[in-house]
Simulated scan of single mutants.
Amino acid sequence: MTFGAPSHRAADDRYEKLGEHRRASDSGLVLPVFSFGLWQKFGTDRPYATRRDIVLHAFDLGITHFDNANRYGPPARAAEKFFGTVLRRDLAPYRDELVLSTKAGNPLGPSPYLKGGSRKSLLASLDHSLRDLGTDHVDIFYSHSPDLCTPLEETVGALVTAVRSGKARYAGISNYTPERAHEAAELLRRAGVPLLVHQPRYSIFDRTPELNGLFDLAARDGFGLVVYSPLAQGLLTDKYLDGTIPPGARARDSAFLSPDAVDDTYRERATALDGIARRRGQSLAQLALQWALRQPQVTSALVGASSTWQLDHNLKALEFPPLTDEELALIDRYGVHGTGSR
């Protein structure tokens, strides 16, 4: 399939819209405070035109970091193939302005070579991702999750090879415990390829990086944090406050959020948090995003979107004044770790 000249001209004022960038800890790379994730809603089950409009709108708003993985879809690899088409048709002139990341290691199928942290699995997947994305390198290549059956030295060695070969600019890890993250950071440092970022889940309802010491470790070891699920799969929005699950909501069709999570305890806590947000003149989603970004160790928060309106709405979180100590204390009262985790 061939395409003509790129059909999208990026907004001239895109770098004035989002504004804030943060350095990925000890590196020279800065990332926008909001990055765009293609984890869900960017597979072949949704119209191409809708997905394209959202991605291009994100770039026009100043989002330059687009986060992918080999298993994102459905089906697996569909999100990378989609983004590769958009890159080729619309964003090719802006490739040097983009930070593209992808991951490998989570299962893609029954083959032992389509999962895990071995050199074969990681490096073969990276080659496949580059073909699907239509680029000769990604900017960040992640080990998607720890593989306890593979020596960490082998997994780290594959990341080092990816960087030294020029197929990736930086190395990252995701979903690692602090202990294993520290080991990986040390091994990468000795190899001369410092760990750029760790990608953990973090939200008002999931305080794991606060509780397990990951924030402190990131400061000590010199890597940044790109947090995902800051809206707790939609639980930190007004979508479920009335106790019902609307059509198309993730609690209906996602493997990552059970309908059982929308219980009376969740509703009581989320409604109280929504009240805090309303008193500030913002939505619960905007409050939740602002809350996640308050942490100095958070380099960027990953957001997704099912519409350009939703993206515009969420990015307005940056327009509100900082949370006060009193508001943070109230959020702690109702933002109980583990809420909605069933």
Rank of each mutant, 00 (worst) to 15 (best):
L236M: 11
F223M: 12
T271P: 02
A255L: 13
L273A: 00
K316V: 08
A219F: 05
H313M: 07
L225A: 02
S306G: 13
L328T: 04
P296S: 14
G243Y: 12
V227E: 03
K239F: 11
P247G: 03
T208V: 12
T299N: 10
G213K: 07
L287Y: 04
Q297P: 07
P246D: 10
D216N: 09
P247D: 11
S300L: 04
S300M: 03
R252C: 14
V336D: 03
T299G: 11
G275R: 15
D242I: 06
R294N: 09
D264P: 00
L318F: 09
V227P: 02
L236Y: 06
T339Y: 06
G224D: 02
S341W: 13
S300A: 13
Q297D: 14
S254C: 07
G248Y: 08
A232T: 12
E327V: 12
A270W: 05
D242A: 09
L214A: 13
L302K: 00
L289K: 08
A261K: 00
P321L: 04
K239V: 14
T339V: 14
S306I: 11
L315Q: 03
T244E: 11
V227N: 02
S254R: 05
R294A: 14
L323F: 09
S229D: 07
L284D: 01
S341N: 14
S283R: 08
Y228A: 10
D253A: 13
V226N: 05
A270V: 08
V226S: 07
V298A: 11
S254L: 06
F256T: 11
A285V: 09
E326C: 06
R250V: 06
P246K: 03
P259N: 10
E268R: 14
S283K: 05
L257Y: 01
L214G: 08
P247M: 04
R269C: 06
W309A: 14
L284V: 09
H313E: 15
D274F: 05
L241K: 02
P246Q: 06
A251L: 04
L287K: 04
R278N: 08
P209T: 01
